[in-house]
Design a protein around this nucleic acid. Structure first.
Lengths: 342, 342
DNA sequence: GTGAAAGCGCTAACAG
DNA sequence: CTGTTAGCGCTTTCAC
């Protein structure tokens, strides 16, 4: 029973001690399994605690312990599509260690970031995770904060600070290998703006795999544009015009793939029979809404968050890590590359 | 400067007092603008605090004040599409009052909910917001927790507990009025499963407005199905077959509208010239990705969160509110109902 | 085995 | 005007 009854004030250890007829120190030991106590005493205290619905005041405990068992997660992403799974993963890993999370969304405003940082520091968080929506290096949030920091789905311009990123290049490679295994030989790659590091890395992975297979697809063949369906629709026509015989298209995002898919259907091109299609992000509403559903590369952002949290826990226990670490992607196969799958 | 320098331990008020050459109590007063102090003293303390990068330990303050200036947000929605904006709004309203938020995602498992509740109570949160993804009444999280609770985007089966919901019926009415104002007269309404209260409320609002305009569209004409694009695609054909002359379709979600839009294009029906289309949720990737972009009803979930937070703040200051409150929806006009808009 | 006492960082009375 | 004191809830020596 979490409910302490209709008491206005929650029970303190003092109340428990009184009810059990022991001293306050003894009650503490009994509750925490410390020191040497008679089993009977231990039980009596436990019973009293249960009766009062006692839950220790974590603040008081933290004050003494010098740590709070909380960490802050600062995201620039408006709790968006990318930082959410990262947070879930982090919360998961931290929650197992009884650590709670303050979530802060800066909406990409430096001023808010500063405010949140102040707030978190005065709440004496044990550590900080800085999450982003782009993997580009960003200004460090502070090198002398006195608490460990891990970057997730972004990295610090100070390259020594620990950062966890998805393996975008590996994701591009996965897509290429899948399409090659299907026997496709004539490719297109439609993706977001070239100024996005993620777009460049995915393209590089894709091209590397092509080169490895002895195929002529090179960096020059990559179609950079926008992260939108509209660009997918436009680029699809472009590819059909400029690449006769194309039998596979890898898209840098599911939204782009969605646009491509729509246009192919409209011009009477069958997916996957004529053209196999692979997206990126594995974003449910997009990949499942498409017809046929989209094969896509999943960045496993929950893992990114989880790993970031693990690095943070290490740092908190004085075993800090350094530099960039990547987490592998995963390919999820669906109808757009394999007929029967729908 | 948030950075306290490379000190391992952060400065305490004791350090500030020492550096300023005053007593610890005086330092406290100076820092908080309490009592009567010489301006010179005040300045000296302030300077010392700045030099040490002092930020008061909120835990210690809270221990004394009997409150923590934190609230918990428990969501069953896996931080999904609906609870995110709700949280943003809540965080917004609470942050202004210097209150920080513990976010907890139960993933719809009662066991996790219990754990999180315990955790939040032992952290002595000042209040609780329970957020959901469906507006159906849910079992109360506890009537005797000792802290105020507000439900957002869900409600308690104990109908007296305060809950903030979007005005789904009003949203349906908005859609109807917009289409009527456009001169449309023959309608379809395609929506999610009838067991969803939200679907029924939206349909009711829509039908009421129709009746108000003297049009024959009734509850029997509503097509209940699923919240998917596939259902939208299927239902579109159904409507075309069974409702000759239909010139407007209101969809219970943007995903459904998306499916409808796709099918209409495929069968050579022009949107909005032949058929005007209104969605629900105003979910960016869907409404902007569609071609033409979708007019949609926005539930203003940030407002729902904000209002929930305001009710919680009231309750925390001993002025609790009761029962269900609704927040109005807003119609966002785009290409699917108004040509030029794209 | 158990209790008494000190102290984590801070604020609020009350003296001086 | 400023310093001293007590105490928020808890853990942890150290005596008994």
């Amino acid at each position: 029973m979490p409910a302490p009854g209709p008491n206005l004030k929650r029970a303190t250890i003092r109340d428990v001690a009184a009810l059990a007829g022991v001293s306050i120190g003894t009650a503490s030991k009994a509750l925490n399994g410390q020191g040497k106590l008679r089993a009977e005493t231990r039980d009596r205290v436990a019973a009293a605690a249960r009766e009062l619905g006692f839950a220790p005041n974590v603040l008081a405990r933290g004050l003494l312990a010098g740590r709070t068992f909380t960490v802050g997660v600062i995201t620039t992403d408006s709790f968006g599509r990318f930082s959410i799974p990262v947070m879930l993963g982090a919360e998961d890993a931290l929650g197992a260690g009884q650590i709670s999370v303050f979530m802060c969304d800066t909406r990409d405003e430096p001023e808010r970031e500063r405010q949140y940082l102040d707030m978190l520091l005065s709440r004496r968080v044990d550590g900080l995770i800085v999450a982003g929506r782009r993997i580009e290096p960003r200004p460090s949030i502070g090198l002398t904060l006195g608490v460990p920091v891990v970057y997730a789905m972004t990295q610090s311009m100070d390259s020594d600070e620990p950062a966890i990123l998805p393996d975008d290049a590996g994701g591009g490679r996965l897509a290429a290998e899948h399409l090659l295994a299907l026997g496709r030989r004539r490719f297109g790659h439609i993706t977001g703006p070239e100024r996005f590091l993620a777009a460049r890395k995915r393209a590089r992975g894709f091209c590397d795999a092509m080169a490895g297979a002895g195929l002529p697809f090179t960096a020059n063949d990559v179609l950079y544009g926008e992260w939108s369906e509209a660009w997918g629709r436009e680029a699809a026509r472009l590819v059909m015009r400029t690449t006769p015989g194309v039998d596979a298209i890898f898209c840098g995002s599911d939204q782009i793939a969605r646009g491509v898919s729509d246009t192919l259907r409209l011009i009477g091109c069958r997916v996957p029979e004529d053209i196999a299609l692979v997206g990126f992000d594995n974003w449910s509403p997009m990949v499942l809404g498409a017809d046929p559903s989209l094969t896509s590369v999943d960045m496993c952002l929950e893992d990114v968050g989880r790993v970031a949290a693990q690095h943070l826990l290490l740092a908190i226990s004085k075993e800090p890590t350094h530099g960039v670490h990547t987490v592998p992607c995963r390919l999820v196969t669906r109808g757009s590359t394999s007929p029967g799958t729908s």
